[in-house]
Design a protein around this nucleic acid. Structure first.
Length: 538
RNA sequence: GCCGGGUUACCCUAGCCUGGUAGGGGGCAGGCCUGCUAAGCCUGUGGCCUAACGGGCCGCGUGGGUUCAAAUCCCACACCCGGCGCCA
């Protein structure tokens, strides 16, 4: 299998520069051979999004209409909603910063500054400056070379070019992001005010809306119960009159169908400023494996002051469910990082079943005749297993790709059985070990007994691997015009010796956990084939 | 933000205190051995260079420094893992 070689690629980039290597980098990719046939089954969904999907359905059934709320919100909105509490909220927000856009248009002010440095700006030079800066921005000129490029383009000394860059275009020399007043929403509440304001005269009351989406919080560190980005399943009810009790009802209607039975709702003593005082509640569900109550929902009636700042004339109930928290309890997981980002946090664990699926016969016959030869070898070997050598059995007499082929199983040694004792061994996976063990016997070894009783069978025997290999070799011999071919396997020490391959992922997993790959034993199988020449008379 | 632990080749791991040839195991590859099995022995297994078999240079997260000599000591940085704090 062709692969990329990261070390070599980076060395080339170092030696020749990015641009040159990049231009020919398509050649570094392995060529599609067109022969790889892969059976691709259905993919796996992410449990978090499965839950989101169910919550969406439940909201819709409850008569809520889905909306998409803005994610980027000006800090000003937070002040309007939270009043004096805003700075505390904003402390937890991410502000967006952007790189200053360099003035390639060359404003009058910039021109004056350049001329002040003693460079007469002809039209030609203006064009040259623009072109140079533009290609710098595109990465065609390396940062180290900017000054040189500029001095060449303008026909001025390096020192002058340096002055132009440092005084007139400092934004090019160092890319420093500049903060804006835009923030990433830390609550779904923040955009709700905007959405409600926009819809209050356009849709008849009661207005029932929901939105499931991400919110961002500036956590110092992500931990088992905190992520920087997580999902809120949020809904609002705006009507001429709204009862805060409905928050509990909505929560139950949302979570009971998921199988939750135990809830706890508590009125918060200290109310957030965007809610009316005493009108904020928290809800908990019981996490069965962590054996504790976890906070999953917050609901309340928006403060009339906050509503007034958006010109909203009706009371609004807001319910926000923390999706990841619910997922924790639902899937009985105790670390939200592992649940959401298994690719980063979950230790790779392969069940024996999964390892078993990664064990396969490496080389297989390609033609129907080849498969028949493989089958015949196995049948005859098993039937005559106890036959004592020297002996030879004709197991196949027929055509392969238009040539007459006779295949024999043989044993030359005096007194030896046709096939070795380990030939019928089966590959078992047991507790992360790959073991090739016989149907019976070897009772003194505990691992063998256990593996036989509790391990996962792959259904692959040593003989299957060897017969596949022999059949394939015969096909190849026919193709290349050989007259005879002999495949003999004696004592196996490794999977490869019996044409069995353990996938790389499984192998890494096993070796990194000090598991054993024990595919060995006296196999002793001899297969030879005679292939009739193309011209029967020769 | 504070405190602690870590990063060694395909995988795991030792070496660090006390500087001196990167050791062991697994896997993989090659050779020897071979008939009832947990199974032996030997060799190889980072990259580059070479006037060619003899070697040279670079490699222990990255970049510096100290030193005749650095995986090891010092400094800075990155990333990972814990704990504390923050967590409307």
């Amino acid at each position: 299998m062709a692969r990329l070689n990261p070390n070599e690629i980076l060395r080339q980039v170092e030696a020749e520069g990015f641009e040159r290597v990049w231009k020919r980098s398509a050649e570094l990719l392995p060529k599609p051979s067109g022969r790889r046939e892969r059976r691709i089954g259905r993919g796996e969904s992410h449990p978090l999004y499965d839950l989101i999907q169910r919550l969406r359905e439940l909201f819709l059934e409850m008569g809520f209409t889905e909306v998409s709320n803005p994610i980027i919100i000006d800090e000003n909105e937070v002040y309007k909603q939270y009043g004096p509490e805003a700075p505390i909220i904003l402390d937890r927000c991410y502000y967006l910063a952007t790189l200053p856009r360099p003035d390639i248009g060359l404003s009058k002010a910039k021109r004056r500054e350049i001329e002040k440095l003693g460079v007469k700006l002809t039209d030609k030079r203006v064009t040259a400056i623009r072109r140079t800066l533009r290609s710098y921005k595109r990465g065609e000129i390396e940062p180290d070379d900017l000054i040189e490029a500029l001095s060449k383009a303008l026909g001025i000394p390096d020192t002058t070019a340096m002055l132009i860059v440092s005084r007139v275009f400092p934004e090019f020399a160092s890319l420093r992001p500049e903060p804006t007043t835009q923030t990433l929403r830390s609550h779904m509440t923040t955009p709700w005010f905007l959405t409600l304001q926009a819809l209050q005269y356009k849709v008849d009351l009661p207005l029932r809306l929901f939105s499931i989406g991400v919110r961002f919080r500036r956590e110092q560190r992500e931990d088992p119960t905190h992520l920087r980005v997580h999902h809120s399943a949020s809904c609002v009810v705006m009507d001429e009159e709204v009862d805060v009790e409905e928050g509990e009802e909505i929560t139950r209607n949302l979570l009971e169908p998921l199988g939750f039975e135990r809830f706890r709702f508590v009125r918060k003593d200290v109310t957030s400023k965007y809610y009316a005082p005493g009108m904020e509640y928290e809800g908990y569900i019981y996490h069965p494996t962590m054996d504790r109550w976890i906070e999953v929902v917050n609901y309340g009636l928006y403060s009339p002051i906050a509503l007034a700042r958006y010109g909203i004339e009706y009371p609004v109930l807001n319910v926000g469910v923390g999706v990841e928290r619910v997922a924790l309890a639902l899937y009985r997981e105790d670390d939200v990082r592992r649940l959401v980002y298994p690719q980063f946090y979950a230790e790779l664990t392969l069940s024996d079943e999964e390892i078993a699926r990664m064990v396969r016969i490496e080389v297989e016959p390609e033609t129907p005749e080849g498969s028949m030869i493989k089958r015949r070898i196995i049948e005859e070997a098993i039937r005559n297993a106890d036959k004592v050598g020297p002996c030879e059995l004709l197991v196949y007499d027929g055509e392969v790709m238009g040539r007459k082929v006779r295949v024999y199983l043989y044993e030359r040694d005096e007194g030896a059985k046709l096939i070795g004792a380990a030939a019928m061994n089966k590959i078992y996976i047991y507790k992360g070990n790959v073991l090739g063990i016989p149907e019976d016997g070897m009772e003194d070894l505990e691992l063998v007994r256990e593996a036989r009783r509790r391990g996962v069978q792959t259904g692959i025997r040593f003989i299957d691997g060897v017969a596949s290999l022999a059949a394939r070799r015969i096909e190849e011999a026919v193709r290349s015009g050989k007259r005879r071919i002999n495949v003999r396997v004696r004592i196996a020490k490794r999977p490869r010796d019996v044409n069995i391959e353990i996938g790389e992922v499984a192998r890494r997993y096993i070796t990194s956990r000090k598991g054993r790959i024990e595919v060995s034993g006296p196999v002793f199988m001899g297969v030879r084939a005679e292939i009739e020449s193309l011209n029967p008379r020769s």
